[in-house]
Design a protein around this nucleic acid. Sequence first.
DNA 1: CCTCGAGTGATATGTTATTACATTTCTTGG
DNA 2: CCAAGAAATGTAATAACATATCACTCGAGG
Lengths: 159, 159
Amino acid sequence: MSTVGFRQHDHAHCVHTALAQAEAKCKAKRLQFTPVRRRVLEILLEKHKAMGAYDILAVLAAEGMGSQPPVVYRALDFLVQHGFVHRIEQLNAYAACAHPTHDHVPAFLICRSCKAVAETETELTQGRLGVAANTSGFQIERVVVEAEGLCPECIGTQA
Amino acid sequence: MSTVGFRQHDHAHCVHTALAQAEAKCKAKRLQFTPVRRRVLEILLEKHKAMGAYDILAVLAAEGMGSQPPVVYRALDFLVQHGFVHRIEQLNAYAACAHPTHDHVPAFLICRSCKAVAETETELTQGRLGVAANTSGFQIERVVVEAEGLCPECIGTQA
DNA sequence: CCTCGAGTGATATGTTATTACATTTCTTGG
DNA sequence: CCAAGAAATGTAATAACATATCACTCGAGG
Ligand SMILES: [Zn+2]
Ligand SMILES: [Zn+2]
Ligand SMILES: [Zn+2]
Ligand SMILES: [Zn+2]
């Protein structure tokens, strides 16, 4: 599993590992890793890209695990809450966390051409934003950092 | 007009000034600063906070300037495109730019309690995100930076 | 066995955004 | 000025994303 997601990797292995890690973490924290929650995470890990809630729901529905929006939104809420999945605000979409082993502030590189999403990390109060927060007395709790542009594959195929 | 929006300022003056600046910039760049576009910007400047597209549309509709969604979305697209307004991804909302005189990468401090939004600036490729982009060959074109937390007014009134 | 709370199933609804096409207005070269 | 093309607008319909609510199930703890 690479830091930025534009390289090859052993995909079947990373799916399996991430699921096992999630299961272990839920056990440790007494969280219910129910079939729907597990399957939603698995779908996101398998696809290995950002998916809309209704895309995930379509997969669930085809498997008879619930066909109504609340099913998937509840599962996503749980997974996001506990750091297994991140929401990509720019895309109204969700992606499995690439660094599930530790707490972190995620940041994303999003290709505007092929929609590939790579996750990296950043600081909660970096650069001028932290300065502005300190100056004004604003208390930062969460930061969304999402860069849009062209991934290595798509540079050259574009204007 | 303050850098971060949690302080007092001469509001009527800042609305007027910003509108005049926008008009001048459009003239210089041969852009059509049409009545709808002007009024949408004015509404955002007057409210001086983030507004949803449909909130703006309701104001327009009450004034007979168009009652269908595309009216306001087209105006917002124009204003965002040319830097007069920014979209706040976390809120699916729009706010007039606080620094319309120069090009910049906006960053926002968003109070989760009172929904106040303050705009500051940042760099296109700051910190680890820039490093990750360079390492992987990703070409950043736009960055969304939005911090959520508590503004000075709301700290203390919360848990 | 009973109760409570988390999770799920199901219906309905709310909110945000886009597509499509007809029409009007503006701009510009002749 | 005038015609042709570009830009903007009017309008209807629909797509995409998200939440409210209530009934039901099931397992843990008393
Ligand atoms: Zn992550
Ligand atoms: Zn790409
Ligand atoms: Zn700005
Ligand atoms: Zn506040």
